[in-house]
Nucleic acid binder design. Structure first.
Lengths: 141, 141
DNA sequence: TATTCAAACGATAATGATTCTCAATATAGA
DNA sequence: TCTATATTGAGAATCATTATCGTTTGAATA
């Protein structure tokens, strides 16, 4: 249950936090901006403040429940942490986001950091390209 | 000369654009925010507007003269395009930025994109870690 | 279950980054 | 040099995010 997740994260269980967490879990779109989350909740009839959404997201991130990404569009999107680490590939036409994990790249990164005198603690890898989804506006045919 | 670069990029040669381009070339720090660029110019006695800096940077980026990065700090930094492609590693304590290029990772990326049905057009890879620079505040010893 | 108090809330003001507006100015070509 | 147009600087406007503040709520305890 979501209450458990919050308690385990050391956060007080409150109605707004549960609403946000539930939305993140149920939503088909896994990468959302704070404003999108806020709007979806309000449109769904919930009473919640935008500031609360930002506050909760910051706390969720600090607790490791969600991850924050800065794709090239410049906007900040949040993603629920589920399953193991992965990176992203974003379609530059339709914005679709796919996830992937590559052992080779992960290992190389650690080696590179070490060779430069860094202790690797995190990384952000995003590929950009054109997808061939049926719905992608830039698709030929 | 800088005028050449602008002309080749299809941009009119103007004083403000030359000032910005020159600063980017001469500055020791290769990754700067728009505001930093603006402030450095003003401190150097130049008369220039912040809006002009933003405009010029956007045009330079469109022309391929510079690249824009979004590191995890959330701020947008600009970097003069010189030499071949490279990725970045950022110290999470002191903010120092190093550059690197890795053939293995570059190749893997293309393979991954293809396997997911994408035609790769770009990517952003940034590693985060703790550096062992003499000046890094988090350094032990 | 009622009490209590710090933590969290919602509304909104404030901030910081970026973009827009517009009158004045500078550029490139005739 | 002259002209038409693009660019500029200053400041207003916008957008995302954070801070403020009086009110409400969660959870520990009586």
């Amino acid at each position: 249950m979501d209450s458990e997740e919050l308690r385990n994260a050391g956060l007080k269980v409150t109605t707004p936090r549960l609403k946000i967490l539930t939305l993140l879990e149920k939503s088909a779109e896994r990468h959302m901006t704070a404003d999108t989350i806020y709007r979806l909740l309000v449109e769904g009839g919930e009473v919640i403040g935008l500031a609360t959404v930002y506050r909760a997201l910051a706390q969720f991130e600090a607790a490791g429940l969600i991850t924050r990404h800065h794709f090239d569009s410049g906007q900040t999107v949040y993603e629920l942490e589920r399953g193991p680490h992965h990176d992203h590939i974003v379609c530059i036409r339709c914005g679709r986001v796919e996830e992937f994990y590559d052992k080779v790249i992960e290992e190389r990164q650690r080696e590179i950091a070490a060779s430069l005198g860094f202790t690797l603690s995190d990384h952000a890898l995003t590929l950009y390209g054109e997808c061939n989804s049926q719905d992608c506006p830039g698709r030929q045919g």
